[in-house]
Computed example of a mutant assay.
Amino acid sequence: MIPAKPVVEPITNAVHLCIDMQNIFARGSIWETPWMERVLPAIVGICDRYTARTVFTRFITPLHAADRPGRWRRYFTKWESATRSRLPAGQLDLVPALARFAPPATVIDKPGYSAFVGSTLAAFLNEKGVDTVAMTGAETDVCVLASVLDAVDLGFRVVIVEDALCSSSDAGHDALMTMYRTRFAEQIELVRAEELPELWREAA
């Protein structure tokens, strides 16, 4: 197996795609992701540098479980407390440290795990001439995973900021980072947040 290569080519025609950094995943919420506080400073730094080139996604739950098809209905029956009819106000908003960047950062809502399914994201990126996504956010092994694989299938260059991802599962996070390094050498590259400005010199 060939390890995923570190980023060596300059990053151009890119956006910072930040997945689902919402209050519902913050400390004390029903889908708490403990690592969020640890990676938030790195994500804030990226947003501060590339504000106008940042796209935030938000996972928008249904009003009621019955509003979603198939196994999603079963999922939201179990997690009825996450439906919009039950959630406290503001739970689906971006966490305050990131909400201040939008606008000019763009916010795109999605109904499922992938940022590209049931959303306007692919059309937005194509309209802007974007061919590279630098990805951060939550969770490494759920919504980030689904978004990464769809970005690969759509032909985007995918740069993962490895110290700006978080998960509620250490085992899941570690397994995915291993997969990215060993199975997607030609399509996924890894970089640390402190290295990004040297590789991606475009700034708003």
Rank of each mutant, 00 (worst) to 15 (best):
T12W: 05
F25M: 05
A14M: 02
L40P: 06
P41W: 00
L121Y: 00
I108L: 02
A14T: 00
P69V: 03
P103I: 09
D153L: 10
A26T: 01
E37V: 12
A65L: 04
I30P: 13
V44Y: 12
R100S: 09
L199D: 09
V191Q: 04
A193W: 02
L87A: 11
P34W: 07
P197I: 12
K110E: 03
L40K: 08
V44M: 09
R38T: 14
L98Y: 09
V39K: 07
E195S: 13
P197L: 08
S114W: 03
A66Y: 08
A82I: 11
N126V: 10
E37G: 14
A42F: 13
G28E: 06
V142G: 07
K5C: 05
E202M: 09
L190A: 15
H173W: 10
I30G: 11
R53G: 11
P69K: 00
E202T: 11
T83G: 01
G155C: 03
L145E: 14
R84G: 09
T33S: 05
T83Q: 10
L40Y: 10
L94G: 01
P111A: 06
R183C: 14
V117I: 13
Q187D: 13
R71H: 13
I30C: 13
F124S: 14
I160H: 08
F156T: 00
R71I: 14
E198V: 12
S147C: 02
D20E: 02
S147N: 06
I30N: 12
D48Q: 14
V191N: 00
Y180H: 04
G155F: 03
L145W: 13
C18K: 03
V117C: 13
W35E: 15
L149G: 10
